[in-house]
């Protein structure tokens, strides 16, 4: 049963909850639309940090207003999840790099079709102007 809270609190809770859920949806959309694994690894982090904090702060406001005391235990999840999310992401990315290295880099590290086209165009330019291609990149 949803309690009758004051209007400002209701609007605040609604905005926080819907905003957090929209960010969660956005992260899942990016997970589907990415071209390679390294593209797809980024968007779910939006859902795990910002979307999660939005919904949990909405919960905090709701229970603080209805319970007439500060409800702080939501802060526990808000504190824990952004700390552990980069750890899993780093482990997973290192595992992915390892597996790509075993399989060979072909086709895996080209981030998207657009970047592949730009690379091909740059190679054509370099073939057309051999003098410009000889200037070395700065080392390191």
């Amino acid at each position: 049963m949803i309690a009758d809270l004051p209007l400002w609190a209701a609007v605040l809770v609604a905005l926080l909850v819907v905003g957090g859920a929209a960010l969660g949806l956005l992260g899942a959309l990016g997970l589907v639309r990415g071209q390679t694994f390294y593209d797809r690894a980024h968007p779910p982090s939006i859902a795990t940090t910002l979307g999660m904090s939005g919904i949990l702060f909405g919960s905090l406001v709701y229970f603080s207003v209805t319970g007439l005391r500060l409800s702080v235990h939501e802060v526990l999840i808000v504190a824990i999840v952004p700390i552990v999310a980069p750890v899993t992401m780093m482990l997973l990315a290192r595992a992915a790099i390892f597996r790509d290295r075993i399989r060979g880099y072909e086709g895996e590290l080209v981030p998207s079709q657009r970047a592949a086209d730009e690379l091909a165009q740059a190679e054509q330019e370099a073939a057309r102007h051999p003098a410009a291609a000889t200037d070395p990149e700065p080392p390191g």
Binding site: I2, A3, D4, L5, L7, A9, A10, A14
Partner: peptide, 9 residues
């Protein structure tokens, strides 16, 4: 009123 807003959200 406010319960409706929160419910729909």
């Amino acid at each position: 009123m406010s319960a409706t807003i929160v419910g729909w959200a």
